[in-house]
Write a protein that binds this DNA or RNA. Structure first.
Lengths: 145, 145
DNA sequence: CAAATATAATTGATATATCAATTATATTTA
DNA sequence: TAAATATAATTGATATATCAATTATATTTG
């Protein structure tokens, strides 16, 4: 069966780009005194900005399963980065809050994440970013539902 | 601390595109009578085309850890999709082969994967694909090493 | 050649991904 | 309002991701 080599497809290229980006980004984050992952930071960031957010919404924002979010939060609570309590208004939900320790690690991590993005976008013009965004948007549209 | 919303970055867009693509692709593959994942198919495909390939090379090609590859192969051997024997020339290596059952599922899966790619690339011109490829190439370059 | 170093694969530990089932609470409908 | 349905979160099972350590074999170096 004739079949285009994976490595020539845009999907392979996307996978490669995102994989390398993750490795680079995590590598830089590892220089922190706290052992945290990029995804943990992104999770805490959402909670810190919007403590009203539900775990279902967090899962959607981070492209994760709600089960994964539950377990990620569990770990972060254990390590005292987050607080989790019952939501007074809707008792199916949990009220999430970043602790002082959580806020501290966010303060340290945010500049690193910004830097990572800058590194990865080096010599890509604003116009090119827009094009890239739009083309990816087409894929998103094509693959939705 | 001022901080660009994740959802506006190209990295978020890349993550979203690849995530949706995976979900769509896996959904279509699930229509097969065999319960296999896209990654299992891509792994078997590499082995089928090049039985000389090592697990280290497989890991690189699929952007995975060698430990993951070991375990993926283990499962595929158990399910009789692959054969794994000692390599005669280099006894540190394993000789991998697709079984008839493995070849059968590949035959069925390949057209689906081709179709998935077509769906995702709908209304993206060849020129646009090239641009996308090149821009992602820049990110790959920026994040390498 | 023997010792040191490198390579291929496996294994262990822990976290995350995925899917299905379950529990608790809210909301809608008959 | 009681019953049916929907929603939020958790839990269980299994696979994969990641990092470190280990085993076996090859290759290089003194």
């Amino acid at each position: 069966m004739e079949y285009k080599a994976s490595s020539e497809t845009i999907f392979y290229q996307i996978e490669k780009a995102i994989k390398q980006y993750r490795v680079m980004a995590q590598g830089n984050l590892n220089k922190l005194e706290y052992k945290v992952t990029i995804n943990q930071i992104l999770l805490m960031l959402q909670i810190d900005r919007n403590p009203e957010i539900s775990q279902v919404e967090l899962a959607e924002l981070l492209f994760k399963d709600v089960a994964s979010v539950t377990r990620m939060i569990e770990l972060l609570v254990k390590r005292n980065f987050l607080l989790r309590e019952e939501d007074k208004k809707d008792r199916r939900k949990k009220a999430l809050k970043t602790t002082d320790k959580g806020k501290r690690v966010l303060e340290l991590a945010i500049p690193i994440i910004k830097k990572n993005r800058e590194i990865a976008q080096n010599d890509i013009t604003e116009e090119e970013k827009e094009i890239l965004f739009k083309l990816l948007g087409k894929i998103i549209l094509n693959t939705s539902k």
